[in-house]
């Protein structure tokens, strides 16, 4: 079962040192998950000041500076993991350093039929 862990927190409350410690600790957790075959992808994000939002309305694209919504806590990074069930995903989320300062939202990925199995003849 694949889950996305979305890391939310107040960007303004992190010191440089905290950010660096968090990065190192998170990378170590990723290495461990990868060795167990449970890591798929993860990355920190640049601050929301770098965000650009786009929507297409009546065939025209509208581009605005900034995130989808202005909130006190911002999306600061994500992980995609492949684990047994929600309890295992929660146990991993609990270990992530930002869980102590912000919020980790856990979302199951909706499984799509695999590309190579959709209407393609076997080779």
């Amino acid at each position: 079962m694949k889950y996305m862990l979305l890391i939310y927190g107040d960007e303004a409350t992190w010191t440089e040192q905290e950010r660096e410690d968090c990065m190192l600790e998170s990378m170590a957790i990723c290495d461990e998950l990868e060795a167990q075959g449970k890591w798929i992808a993860s990355s920190p994000l640049h601050p929301v000041s770098s965000a650009t939002s786009l929507r297409v309305r009546e065939g025209r694209r509208e581009i605005t500076d900034g995130p989808f919504a202005e909130t006190t806590e911002q999306l600061g990074g994500y992980y995609i993991i492949d684990v047994e069930d929600l309890d295992e995903a929660l146990a991993i989320a609990e270990r992530l350093p930002p869980a102590k300062k912000g919020t980790v939202e856990i979302r199951p990925l909706f499984p799509l039929p695999q590309r190579d199995q959709v209407g393609q003849p076997e080779q």
Partner: peptide, 10 residues
């Protein structure tokens, strides 16, 4: 079902 909450004794 969607979040796969397990049927286990913790």
């Amino acid at each position: 079902r969607a979040a796969k909450i397990p049927f286990v004794i913790p």
